[in-house]
Amino acid sequence: MNETLNNIEVAMFYLMIIAYLLSTVMYWLTLVSKKVWLEHLATGITILGLAGNTVALIVRTIIAQRPPLSNGYEFILTFCWGIVAVYLFAEFRYKIKALGSFVMPLPFLLLTFIIMKMGPEERVASAIPPALKSQWLTFHVITAMLAYGAFAISFGLGVMYLLKSRSDDENGKSNAKGWISRFPASQILDELAYKIIGFAFPLLTLCIITGAIWANYAWGTYWSWDPKETWSLITWIIYAAYLHVRLMYGWKGKKAAWMEVFGFLAVLFTFFGVNYLLPGLHSYA
């Protein structure tokens, strides 16, 4: 039974990586082609990849008899799921197909990291460490997954804004040509990034709070300045500063876009740099 489930999980993993690669290529093609069928194909392949991602997580849950949240391989699968799920919501809600060109490479690169850097032994569904045996872990990782996924969307919007704004005149009118002309107006990109961060920031706050409660359960203290905790706080401060200067000082445009980019770089370091470069209580991740 487990062998069959393992084969299904492996098949879903490769379905994901192929689907996310193909969707990236399709979204890139939509920037240079106005064919509607290409846009529909890109979205359809993305949905297929998300379906494979979902099945892989469900199968891993059945195999491990626990939520798939206890090692780096499983965290990356959930991270990919969060990015793609939030992206598809944004695409259907706001009808910005070009955003996929900047978001969908992220889950593909995350899965490529698994292939290049993780051996088979790191992908095995092992017994859960005692420190992870808490329902607070589930809440902690789910909020992180959705927050990080949303921040990936704001990153894509920030990059699009920086590219689009280069062709704007002093009155904000765009003179973009070529594939950049397919982007929405700079003001729309700016406002949407603000909305996405406004959605993600409370989730990041909940992630840190539930993580503190979990830490107290596991290690007897709410906060120990572990590298993961420290960088999570740094990430929170960056996005809190973004919202503060936006609301209090009216920061928009390039300054806000650069904060969106740097904020997501902090997310990536919190996720990868801490787990693989800095020793700490979270090194098992």
Score class of each variant (00 low, 15 high):
residue 52 G to F: 03
residue 40 H to Y: 13
residue 232 S to K: 05
residue 159 V to C: 10
residue 284 Y to S: 14
residue 130 P to T: 10
residue 165 S to L: 14
residue 77 L to V: 11
residue 153 I to K: 04
residue 213 I to N: 05
residue 113 F to D: 03
residue 90 A to K: 09
residue 72 G to C: 10
residue 125 A to I: 12
residue 118 M to H: 13
residue 264 F to C: 01
residue 3 E to F: 09
residue 239 Y to V: 09
residue 80 C to Q: 00
residue 270 T to R: 01
residue 186 S to M: 07
residue 259 M to G: 10
residue 175 N to C: 08
residue 228 K to D: 01
residue 109 L to P: 04
residue 197 I to A: 07
residue 184 P to M: 09
residue 149 G to C: 00
residue 77 L to Y: 06
residue 58 I to R: 07
residue 96 I to Y: 02
residue 117 K to M: 13
residue 234 I to S: 06
residue 262 F to H: 02
residue 278 L to M: 04
residue 181 S to L: 09
residue 163 L to C: 08
residue 10 V to I: 14
residue 153 I to E: 04
residue 90 A to P: 11
residue 125 A to N: 03
residue 61 T to R: 11
residue 55 V to I: 15
residue 58 I to G: 01
residue 133 K to T: 08
residue 196 I to N: 00
residue 234 I to F: 07
residue 62 I to S: 12
residue 240 A to C: 11
residue 155 F to D: 05
residue 126 S to K: 13
residue 40 H to T: 14
residue 256 A to G: 10
residue 55 V to Q: 04
residue 17 I to V: 04
residue 234 I to T: 08
residue 284 Y to G: 15
residue 236 W to C: 05
residue 155 F to P: 01
residue 278 L to H: 04
residue 151 F to A: 08
residue 221 T to P: 04
residue 277 L to W: 09
residue 32 V to L: 12
residue 217 Y to H: 14
residue 119 G to E: 05
residue 125 A to D: 05
residue 176 A to N: 05
residue 252 K to T: 12
residue 51 A to Q: 12
residue 2 N to F: 11
residue 241 A to V: 12
residue 200 A to D: 02
residue 226 D to A: 01
residue 56 A to Y: 00
residue 135 Q to S: 15
residue 32 V to I: 14
residue 16 M to I: 09
residue 222 Y to R: 02
residue 28 W to V: 04
residue 113 F to A: 00
residue 70 S to V: 14
residue 61 T to D: 12
residue 21 L to M: 01
residue 158 G to W: 03
residue 172 G to F: 10
residue 94 Y to D: 02
residue 131 A to K: 10
residue 75 F to N: 02
residue 232 S to F: 05
residue 22 L to R: 12
residue 239 Y to S: 02
residue 40 H to P: 14
residue 58 I to W: 06
residue 176 A to R: 06
residue 76 I to L: 06
residue 140 H to W: 00
residue 251 W to N: 02
residue 95 K to G: 15
residue 179 W to F: 09
residue 75 F to Q: 07
residue 97 K to S: 13
residue 106 L to I: 00
residue 106 L to S: 00
residue 203 L to A: 07
residue 89 F to Y: 07
residue 129 P to N: 03
residue 109 L to G: 04
residue 57 L to K: 05
residue 123 R to G: 13
residue 77 L to C: 13
residue 89 F to P: 01
